[in-house]
């Protein structure tokens, strides 16, 4: 469904991706984990054509889309729902207008129907009250949820979410992740979610991919990742589960 073959990407001197191989099957929910700054967001942006690889291939539904023109990408992107790490809401529009935007652009629904959809999407992310606020008037977590509602507005087939739960309180984290999981299950979506939250990933994922030093060093169902012999994966999981503040006087 989505396949990355030997993907390389550098920014100037800095090598970010150095041969990413990843195969994501239709209807599965895959979590990508890794340290901050390893290139998870960069990876996600390749899948939707915002960044072009220096080398390697991106294959979607058996089609090699690496060399797609902007017009071809445009057609393809209608099937995607993309959540930016920072939300990327249009700051000249209210929350409701942001969510309505893709509907106005890509459907011929009437105002009434659009309004109904917006209402529905906003209520699942708990933002009905704030529909007429501008992004600048929202908290970080509210912005993220508004962006999530926008990404889901067109009922996409493939969802690419960059840290949908980061910055939310624990209760919201669980409810948003449940929302993503349920939507994905219900409509058989293919989902790729970047997260730092190991415990949520372990519970919700079909597959987990660990990105480290420019490559996917572990890929498999959660149980398999839990038992991974790879030293980085071990360390990563250990810190997540046993992680507590260092003892007084000790340094990291």
């Amino acid at each position: 469904m989505v396949e990355l073959v030997d993907l390389h990407k550098s920014f100037g001197e800095q090598k970010v991706l150095t041969g990413v191989n990843l195969k994501i099957s239709r209807g599965s929910l895959t979590f990508i984990m890794g340290r901050s700054g390893t290139g998870k967001s960069v990876l996600l942006k390749h899948i939707i054509g915002l960044l072009k690889p220096d080398r390697g291939k991106i294959i979607i539904d058996g089609q090699d889309v690496t060399e797609y023109s902007e017009a071809q990408w445009q057609r393809l992107r209608r099937r995607f729902g993309f959540l930016f790490q920072e939300g990327a809401l249009f700051d000249s529009m209210t929350v409701a207008e942001n969510v309505a935007f893709p509907l106005i652009e890509h459907t011929s629904l009437s105002w009434r129907e659009i309004e109904k959809r917006v209402q529905e999407k906003l209520s699942v992310v708990g933002l009905l009250e704030d529909r007429d606020k501008y992004p600048a008037e929202l908290s970080g977590g509210m912005r993220k949820r508004a962006a999530l509602a926008r990404a889901l507005a067109l009922d996409p087939e493939i969802i690419l979410f960059d840290e949908p739960t980061t910055g939310l309180d624990p209760i919201l984290q669980v409810s948003i992740m449940r929302l993503i999981r349920d939507t994905q299950r219900q409509f058989g979506l293919t989902g790729i979610v970047v997260t730092h939250d190991v415990s949520i990933a372990m519970k919700a994922a079909d597959f987990i991919a660990v990105l480290h030093e420019g490559q996917i060093v572990a890929f498999g169902p959660p149980e398999e990742i839990r038992g991974s012999p790879h030293p980085f994966v071990k360390q990563f999981l250990q810190s997540a589960f046993e992680g507590c503040l260092p003892e007084e006087g000790s340094h990291v």
Partner: peptide, 18 residues
């Protein structure tokens, strides 16, 4: 410029709007 640096232009692109 603001839309560019806050990824709003990327957001347009991702939503298949030129």
């Amino acid at each position: 410029g603001t839309m560019r640096v806050t990824e709003q232009i990327d957001a347009l692109q991702v939503m298949a709007v030129h």
